[in-house]
């Protein structure tokens, strides 16, 4: 589904991603872990071209993302319309939810399908209600984001992304800004999505969740993938010193029984 080769991203003089290679198969759940500043969020944002990568390629469902390879082999940036269309097939959920405050929950969810895909208003509303049902918030359809708790807002954000029927879902530390008691409800939704076979790339600190739900865990440090593998192997026998040190921080105080 997703094939990344030699991905490089620079901000000015500073190189954040030093040539990332990553494959995500259809239906696979990949969790990306790593210390802050390692480039996890940047990597995720490159996957839907919110950040325009400087070198390498990102291929989503067979199509090169954001660029077109010219006859001379060089990369040329695609037009706004094409890029927007690609993004419509990739769903993203953000750490700060980013719900549109001036629209009701239902309108937040139906906005994109109606105006971008041309779905009929009544059909879009029906689909939206079903999605709200799925995330457990059917009763909040007409509420405004400002009246919802953070956990509820995040679940609406997930429903909003799902409304576009994406092929892949990207999650950027979606529980980091939530009060601890609200984290569970969001993880439950995400677990459900994984069980339904959605292809997911998740940046998270929730190690227990990763161990449970991920097919593969990728450890990113300093803009490079240091290790990758099934969660059980990675957590129990980290081969690199850095991963070992990183995991140790999570196990002090309580045992991460893997």
């Amino acid at each position: 589904m997703i094939r990344v080769r030699g991905l490089v991203k620079r901000f000015g003089q500073h190189t954040v991603l030093h040539g990332i290679d990553l494959d995500v198969a259809r239906g696979e759940v990949v969790v990306v872990i790593g210390p802050s500043g390692s480039g996890k969020t940047t990597l995720l944002r490159c996957l839907n071209f919110l950040e325009e990568y400087d070198d390498g390629e990102v291929v989503v469902d067979g199509e090169l993302l954001g660029y077109r390879r010219g006859a001379d082999g060089r990369l040329r940036r695609r037009g706004e319309e094409e890029i927007a269309k690609s993004r419509g097939e990739i769903g993203m959920v953000f750490q700060s939810f980013n719900l549109f405050p001036h629209k009701s929950v239902l309108d937040n969810i139906t906005l994109a399908p109606i105006y971008i895909k041309g779905v009929r208003r009544d059909v879009a509303k029906q689909v939206a209600r079903e999605l709200l049902e799925k995330v457990g918030l059917a009763h909040k359809a007409d509420a405004y984001p400002g009246t919802l708790s953070s956990g509820q807002q995040q679940r609406v954000a997930i429903a909003r992304a799902l409304a576009m029927q994406p092929k892949v879902m990207l999650f950027d530390e979606v529980t980091s800004a939530l009060d601890p008691e609200l984290v569970g409800e969001v993880l439950t939704v995400m677990r459900g999505l994984a069980e339904d076979g959605m292809t997911m790339v998740i940046v998270s600190h929730e190690m227990h969740f990763a161990r449970e739900v991920a097919h593969r865990v990728v450890f990113l440090d300093g803009g490079r993938i240091l290790e990758a593998g099934p969660p059980k192997t990675l957590f129990r026998e980290p081969s690199s010193e850095r991963l070992h040190a990183f995991l140790r921080r999570f196990t002090e105080g309580y045992k991460l029984s893997v």
């Binding site: 839907n48 319309e81 993203m92 980013n98 549109f100 105006y115 971008i116 954000a157």
Partner: peptide, 22 residues
Amino acid sequence: SRGQLDAALSLGMTRGRAMRKI
């Protein structure tokens, strides 16, 4: 906030549309 534009773009809106509607 920048996140509003990010969310609009990630849903598949073109930059122009995202700016206007959101």
